[in-house]
């Protein structure tokens, strides 16, 4: 051994399937958190633009708190802290989904709020003039137009979520990051497995980016 570059990827080849299994864990966490964040984000956004002051206030406080504290702290509060309050343990997987979901809801609600406000006011008036009630108006007329405009920002948020999900390693969920770390510990060499993990994350993000472009293209058909 000496100084200089001393990398040996070949000894990690048998560990690659083990690390790759983490892809599924990461994707499951991200997908469920994204769904939760998106659904909650829409509700919060509607609260923010709605007329009921209490709900607007509530949604603003929510956003402020979740944006104003570190994600890893929120994750640890839910995983390590909450059992003290609710009296039972939460597994790492649901804790991760809840933490990431709640956290991204705060960001997504801001994106959606801006998207709704950017839809021409006339759309709302036209819907009102036709006697279309609030719920179908939002669901079928305003939100589809808002979503089209905010798709790039939304995609960005999902990409961030994919990468940030690596912090679940602190609560021991067996995602890509955690597995790479375990392999590194086994072989007393971290550089190679972490590089492999990095490559996997990068490929995932690239796939997400391409997916986003494809969806955007489809939504532009009415232009």
């Amino acid at each position: 051994m000496g100084f200089g570059v001393n990398l040996n990827f070949s000894q990690f080849i048998p560990s690659i399937p083990f690390i790759l299994e983490g892809v599924l864990v990461t994707l499951k966490i991200v997908a469920l958190a994204a769904l939760l964040g998106f659904a909650l984000g829409i509700i919060l956004a509607l609260f923010k633009i709605g007329r009921i002051k209490v709900l607007t206030w509530l949604a603003n406080v929510y956003t402020s708190v979740f944006r104003g504290t570190p994600l890893v702290l929120q994750l640890m509060i839910i995983y390590f802290g909450m059992p003290q309050i609710i009296g039972f343990e939460i597994d790492a997987f649901p804790a991760a989904v809840i933490a990431f979901g709640l956290n991204s809801a705060a960001y997504i609600s801001e994106i959606i709020r801006a998207g709704i406000l950017a839809v021409d006011k006339g759309q709302r008036e036209a819907a009102m003039a036709l006697g279309i009630p609030y719920k179908p108006m939002m669901r079928d007329i305003i939100l589809p137009q808002a979503l089209k405009n905010i798709l790039p920002a939304l995609m960005n948020e999902f990409i961030t979520l994919t990468k940030e999900s690596a912090v679940v390693t602190v609560i021991g969920a067996m995602d890509i990051m955690r597995r790479a770390y375990i392999v590194g510990g086994d072989k007393y060499a971290f550089f190679e497995p972490l590089l492999i993990a990095g490559l996997i994350y990068y490929i995932l993000v690239m796939i997400l980016t391409l997916l986003g472009k494809a969806v955007e293209g489809r939504m532009r058909k009415s232009d």
Binding site: D120, G122, Q123, E125, A126, A129, K148, S222
Partner: peptide, 11 residues
């Protein structure tokens, strides 16, 4: 009602 700027649903 018919508006000056039409307000058709573009999607």
């Amino acid at each position: 009602m018919v508006f000056q700027h039409f307000h058709l649903f573009p999607h």
